[in-house]
Simulated assay, not measured.
Amino acid sequence: MPRPVWTGTISFGLVAIPVKLYHAVRRQSVSFNQLDDRTMSRIRYKKVSALDGDEVPDDHIVKGFEVSKDRYIVVDPDELEPFIPAATKTVELEEFVDLDEIDPVFYDNAYYVAPGTNPKPYVLLARAMEESNKVAIGRFVMRNKQYTAAIRAEEGRLIMSTLAYADEVLDPATIDELQELDDVDVSKKEVAMAESLVDSLSATFEPEKYRDEYREQVLDLIQIKASGQAFEAPEAVAEQPKVVDLMAALEASVARAKDARGRHPSTAEPSAKKKAAKKTTKKKAAKKTAAAKKSA
């Protein structure tokens, strides 16, 4: 049973809505520990001085910011105390914006927003936001850190995503390769062929189709070795040759995509039915012709 990671209220104007935040995404990964292969004991790390390699006790460890090579400014925790945001229990909504105005690059961690004691104000806000296609922008503090967040409504539920700050998002103008795209010439035929490829691969998004295959294979490997069985490593997949001719690559890709669609069961059934219908029609026509000859 998931547990809330934050409890408080959403506040805008004179309205306060009690809510709880739950993680919307649970990251899955495989982690390993470093071991001593002689004793299979865990490897521990010590805090040592880079100057002489001696272990440094905790009471001699301070925080420092490197301003130049090997030059640090030491900052005392008491000096940081005034800057730590007050641990409030309120998400202060400041404005509502259109959903398509937010570039997805700004989205960070996602949380489900669940109602507190009285769900009616929650439902009213969610319905109003969903019908107006608006997203609420606000600020809140969690674990002594202030976040800017976007709250959107989807199927009657509220979903909050923390947002990156503008100075954290890299300007694409700083990437040289992206500035060279304006000088690339493509023909209308190439664009049409690329659109045909996109159209042939268009489908409804089904997130269940995409899995972390590396993690699944590693877990299988661990399970096999834990059961005492021998593990045979699969053969490495040969690297595909690079295609230089862009049009040839596009045409081959479109043909392969159409062929794959034709072999898919959902698209193959109608053609099979048509063939069966044609056979039935031919049989009926042959019977009618035989009957007509007999009567004659």
Rank of each mutant, 00 (worst) to 15 (best):
I137M: 08
I137N: 05
G138E: 06
R139G: 04
R139D: 04
V141M: 05
K145S: 09
Q146S: 11
Q146V: 09
Q146A: 14
Y147L: 03
R152K: 13
A153C: 03
E154Y: 09
E155M: 06
E155Y: 02
G156H: 07
R157A: 15
I159Y: 00
A164W: 11
A164C: 08
A164T: 02
Y165I: 04
Y165G: 08
A166M: 09
A166C: 03
D167G: 02
E168L: 06
E168H: 07
E168T: 05
E168P: 02
L170V: 14
D171E: 10
A173C: 02
A173D: 10
Q179S: 12
L181C: 08
D182V: 01
D183A: 09
V184L: 13
V186P: 04
S187C: 09
V191T: 10
A192W: 00
A194M: 07
L197F: 03
L197N: 00
D199P: 00
S200W: 06
L201V: 05
S202W: 01
A203Y: 04
A203Q: 15
T204D: 14
F205Q: 02
E206I: 12
E206N: 06
E206R: 07
E206G: 01
E206Y: 03
P207H: 07
E208M: 11
Y210V: 09
Y210P: 00
R211W: 02
R211E: 12
R211N: 02
D212R: 12
E213R: 13
E213M: 09
R215A: 11
R215S: 12
E216A: 13
E216F: 01
Q217S: 07
I222T: 13
Q223C: 00
K225E: 03
K225P: 06
S227G: 13
A230W: 00
A230N: 09
F231D: 02
A233F: 13
P234C: 03
E235W: 03
A236C: 05
V237C: 01
V237H: 04
E239D: 08
Q240G: 03
P241N: 02
V244Q: 11
D245H: 02
